[in-house]
């Protein structure tokens, strides 16, 4: 499949796997370096369980041997991502120094980008909006515990902006790339159809020759003789 799908879903699969692995590595490194901000170890464990589930789901659903994603599968993945953000926020609840450098929204944003080859731009736009909204609410709710005294709405913006930016990039990429691929596909099919139409004459003559050979060998001599006798 990779041979006939150089820049789309199949070709994007390795990048999807790299992004998926990067998400786990990023989460581990960030949690280790900011271990002092963790206030609930059970929620941290739950967060990583959800993260691994989302990553495995993403990698599994993008296998080349699987059919395309259904909307239900997409719903499951995005549900896991919402749970991931909530669980990550609860794991550092009250101890989060700055929401702008949290890893959970970045993981969600990277997942949105990893989906560009598999989902439509419209769906990506909707989920970008949903995840941005969830991250904004979580940022707002955590604003009382922030070290820097700033207006609360700013935490909503800083906590969700990474999803908005990378999600917008994913939508822009998917719209341009998928549109170009589909447009080329249409042109390629038209071209193949036109080639096949041009070859119809040759194919027809070949079939006719084959039929005449068969009929000439078996039946036509009999018919010709009978007709010539009967016509006399």
């Amino acid at each position: 499949m990779e041979n006939v799908d150089p820049l789309s879903a199949a070709a994007a699969r390795p990048l999807t796997v790299v992004i998926a692995v990067s998400m786990v590595v990023l989460a581990i490194l960030d949690s280790v370096t900011k271990a002092e901000q963790v206030t609930s170890f059970p929620f941290l464990v739950a967060t990583f369980v959800i993260l691994v589930a989302a990553v495995v789901f993403l990698v599994d659903r993008t296998r080349l041997s699987r059919p395309g994603w259904s909307r239900a599968s997409a719903l499951v993945l995005h549900g896991l991502l919402v749970l991931l953000m909530i669980s990550a926020a609860l794991a550092t609840w009250g101890g989060n120094v700055a929401v702008r450098d949290d890893w959970a929204p970045l993981v969600v944003a990277l997942t949105l980008f990893a989906l560009t080859s598999y989902r439509s731009p419209a769906e990506l736009a909707i989920w970008t909006g949903v995840h941005t909204g969830v991250a904004a609410v979580l940022g707002l709710l955590q604003s009382p515990y922030a070290q820097t005294p700033l207006p609360a709405p700013l935490f909503a913006i800083s906590g969700s902006v990474v999803i908005l930016i990378i999600g917008s990039a994913a939508v822009g990429y998917a719209r341009s790339m998928n549109g170009s691929v589909l447009s080329w596909e249409k042109r390629a099919w038209r071209r193949a159809e036109s080639l096949a139409r041009e070859a119809r004459g040759g194919v027809a003559r070949s079939v006719r020759q084959q039929q005449i050979s068969r009929a000439g060998r078996d039946a036509m001599p009999v018919c010709s003789i009978v007709w010539s006798i009967g016509a006399r």
């Binding site: 006939v4 799908d5 150089p6 820049l7 789309s8 879903a9 199949a10 070709a11 395309g68 080859s117 598999y118 998928n178 170009s180 691929v181 589909l182 080329w184 596909e185 390629a188």
Partner: peptide, 9 residues
């Protein structure tokens, strides 16, 4: 699953 593009494109 959309098919890919030719190399020149």
């Amino acid at each position: 699953m959309p098919l890919g593009l030719p190399p020149h494109l």
